[in-house]
Design a protein around this nucleic acid. Structure first.
Lengths: 199, 199
DNA sequence: CGGTTTATTGATTGACTAGTCAATAAACCA
DNA sequence: TGGTTTATTGACTAGTCAATCAATAAACCG
């Protein structure tokens, strides 16, 4: 009994299911049948809407990055002044919507996928570029000379914290993770407040 | 024409080939046949010596971590004083023997594998614990109150730099990577030289 | 009401691959 | 010398899975 206008609903369900399955399995070795089952449809339908497994992965990744981007934009909208903006970006990176076991697991696997699938690589580069930009802009105000280096350091640290979360036995603690990066930021800014000349 | 005593030679070749193939493919989706071919033997022989693909992966990982451990030990042996020891550990993390495209690619994939294979997870935990210890010990001398937090921050940053290297278009530059982490360290230590109380 | 589009699936196919096995042969041993 | 161990492989098996297809059926359209 097919109702019309199912496409967006099914696609959304399949994207969610893809992330969940990858996160649970901790691997890209999930079958289309598994994903489809979780989404409550047949594997044939999944192929019908996405064309291939790779396209499903890509859509899932776009979804994750989209959520993250929304989180950042939302936080930035409320922030005033460069320091606040930096904090906003960092906190958004560990907000509950992104910093969950399944999402982290999926995210790590997309890094792996980027080595094989050019489209995924491009997508991930866009994300990296955007986060660096978001950090660099306020840093240019606070520490112009070191803005570039600090932005890269912060970005690396955020990625590193994510990565280490994958192995953690404890469930991820976004607040604590954010605190570590925020502390790094504070100390760096306190060090050479408004000028630079890093090695 | 089989000569005796081939086992260690074949095993070493297969381990090398495993790392190379995973690094090149950027994925764990490499066939035993591929690995064996690169090692110059049949896939049957690979199974003969390792029993299963999983054991090959595990051996490859032990090899990578072993190389890294040796690098750290070597650097530590030459270091004098806590500050020097810290620098040694960080530099060793980006030494040429470990910081190569293929090794980095393989290393990332082992993080993924850890989510599935308990033995790999255990191995990776041992590595993380060891690097944290190596950092903590000298930090306890230089900044006792913050030693724990700083060690975790440094470790996260090291992992993060590795991770970002995976996507990089340029070939990995260990010196520059090390410089970034060393700078982080210097600033943190300069900030509150011999006491603490981080938020 | 027919005809078209949309939704949906069971069944099938075609390709791939981990792991097994029996066979071959050189080297060592008693 | 003849038996055992070690090295090595080609061929095979059994299982998996992405992708396709033909078929069913509801909804919409003129």
């Amino acid at each position: 009994m097919p109702r019309l206008g199912m496409e967006p609903i099914r696609k959304a369900a399949l994207v969610e299911a893809t992330i969940t399955e990858i996160g649970r399995a901790g691997s890209l070795d999930v079958t289309v049948a598994q994903i489809a089952r979780r989404a409550g449809v047949s594997s044939a339908l999944a192929h019908h809407y996405f064309g291939s497994k790779e396209q499903m992965f890509l859509a899932a990744m776009r979804h994750i990055l989209g959520l993250y981007g929304a989180e950042v934009r939302g936080a930035l909208a409320l922030a005033e002044g460069p320091r606040d903006r930096l904090r906003a970006v960092i906190r958004a990176s560990f907000a509950a919507s992104s910093f969950r076991r399944e999402t982290i697991g999926a995210w790590l696997n997309f890094y792996v996928l980027a080595q094989t699938v050019p489209d995924v690589k491009r997508l991930l580069r866009v994300y990296q570029h955007r986060i660096c930009s978001n950090l660099r802009a306020p840093l240019r105000v606070l520490a112009p000379e070191r803005a570039e280096a600090l932005a890269e350091g912060l970005a690396a640290m955020i990625d590193g914290v994510y990565l280490r979360e994958v192995l953690g036995q404890r469930p991820p603690d976004g607040a604590q993770a954010a605190a570590m990066v925020l502390d790094y930021l504070d100390v760096q800014l306190a060090a050479r407040p408004n000028s630079g000349g890093a090695a």
